[in-house]
Design a protein around this nucleic acid. Structure first.
Lengths: 327, 327
DNA sequence: TTGTAGGCGTTATCAG
DNA sequence: CTGATAACGCCTACAA
């Protein structure tokens, strides 16, 4: 069912039908009514692709998520979707994985779909390959990075101050008498590296001795095992900060299973302040990097840029520590 | 940059460029090379909307999610996306909320985008308004329902046998000596109502006395409060089944805070076998409704239908109980 | 091997 | 107030 079909049935031209559909003035009330009825009768729905072709506006936003295992990435995508749909946009969402080359590929796909804007969720987009792909394909399209930044004229970054945040976590432990903190990292994303840097910085400035950084993979088993390893190799450790709540949750359980009391003997801090932190027993103290705020800000930054505004190129969102039962 | 621009630079016609882009035969190797270089030099990317107009194929799949708070819905959407992107589709994702009317609206949006297929995630799509909207707008497009079904020729349903599953949970409690089970429900979705029916059926067939169904909202606080209420009003209760893991996790904590031992005094069972169940301490026994399997099956059903196959109209996925520490 | 012409479904710009 | 007509970017016969 096209506007031509409707036009024929109504005995008018396609342009008149188009006017009615788009609520343009200059159509006699009577013909308008007639056409509207036919539109309804035949369940006419405009073809947005054809429409976009002539208006040069796809009304599509591209969202790229680097790691769907990270609950606040997926949640963030939905938050952004919800804001943009209000303005009549539709969102195509891809999960790119952490591989650099494939990210560039997806940016090309966004170009082919002629997206009017893009949001890249996750700090791992902050790499050369993505920068080049944006320059190549999306250089005329506003791109908002949720927890990342690239120095390009059309790129806007919303960043969590994770380095300071983690440094503050170390200080919190210190203030509570925990002087031997360890740090657990999984992926080497810019975000995680910033957290690690915050840990190292605070440990050094407070003179807490050696840096104790342990690596694991982002699974409950990984968090569990690495925690046991830490305590075996360094029984003097009295506080552990984990790069994400998920690992902290597993670590908490490992400590408990080892008969270690929390937070008395060992304090635990997670990062993200996700639902995991609240479900955990004892409830996790967690660095709140303001996911919701960050995603909302990303959405509004994009909306502003889309409207021709001049949003801030770089916005820093301050984190805070949500204290619960593990510190 | 259009094929015309490239054609001009190459000194050929647009059709020749088109042939090269689409790898069609009948282009002299030399001109082909020349054109390919120009394509790369100018970062040409075909406009998929224009392409779709002429090929009558949007290569777009629509995914509708009813409730993004449900972690296995959002995860499911990503699983499905990942499968379809392999075949060159791109997915537009909307979260519709649980409101019936707005769901119909989104189905219309899918039509306007001329999606080639759709996946509806969540049992709450199993309603009249959606059925009518599909008939009206998507009657020629394969629609797969993840955990739902509607009796229309183009609709395929993948369903979890939650009623039996919950009945089996009651039996499990029974076998372990827990004879006064209660059930906690939040949303009145078809899925949750099936779970409730399973509970009631088993309680009756085992002759376990009165039906004890409590309602709450899907928050940790809700799960916590309702659990205390249950134990106050019915201290004889010795087992609680919660409609979702999230509530069970909160309930577990409430029981512990009341000094009730788990599972000795009161056993707990959640539903979804989500990560929440594993993070919880004690780890939750949970009804595994095979989310991953269900989403995968949905994806493959759609792919089969898209390819012109005749997938099963209705597939039942059998659940199982993952026993952990709360039973 | 290559080019021309027509059309996909719309909107926009003119005339009338 | 209404109707031709020409785009938008691409593909595909058909013709050369």
């Amino acid at each position: 069912m096209t506007i031509y079909d409707i036009a024929k049935k109504a005995g008018v031209s396609a342009s008149t039908v188009s006017r009615v559909i788009n609520n343009k003035p200059g159509v006699r009330e009577e013909t308008k009514k007639r056409i509207q009825q036919l539109l309804i009768k035949y369940n006419y729905s405009p073809n947005e692709a054809a429409r976009g072709l002539v208006t040069q506006a796809s009304k599509i936003i591209g969202i790229l998520v680097d790691d769907i295992r990270t609950i606040h990435h997926t949640d963030g995508a939905y938050i952004i979707e919800r804001e943009l749909v209000k303005l009549g946009y539709c969102c195509i969402i891809f999960n790119t994985g952490t591989d650099e080359a494939s990210k560039a590929k997806y940016i090309n796909i966004l170009k082919r779909r002629r997206v009017e804007g893009a949001v890249l969720i996750g700090s791992s987009f902050q790499v050369k390959a993505v920068e080049q792909a944006i320059k190549k394909y999306l250089n005329d399209t506003p791109v908002v990075m949720a927890n990342g930044y690239l120095d390009l004229p059309n790129v806007y970054g919303i960043l969590a101050d994770e380095q300071n945040g983690v440094a503050n976590c170390v200080k919190l432990l210190y203030d509570k008498g925990h002087r031997r903190p360890a740090f657990v990292i999984d992926l080497h994303t810019p975000s995680n590296l910033a957290k690690k840097a915050g840990y190292e910085q605070a440990v050094q400035s407070l003179g807490l001795g050696d840096i104790l950084v342990y690596e694991t993979n982002r699974t409950l088993q990984g968090g569990y095992n690495v925690t046991k390893k830490i305590m075996q190799e360094h029984p003097e450790v009295d506080g552990i900060i984990y790069a994400v709540d998920l690992l902290a949750a597993a670590g908490t359980r490992a400590l408990l299973d080892m008969g270690i009391s929390i937070p008395k003997q060992v304090a635990v801090i997670g990062i993200d302040n996700s639902i995991y932190a609240e479900i955990c027993n004892p409830k996790l103290t967690s660095l709140d990097n303001k996911l919701l705020n960050l995603s909302m800000t990303a959405a509004h930054t994009l909306i502003s840029a889309l409207a021709g505004g001049q949003p801030n190129k770089k916005i820093l969102i301050f984190s805070s520590i949500e204290e619960r039962e593990t510190t």
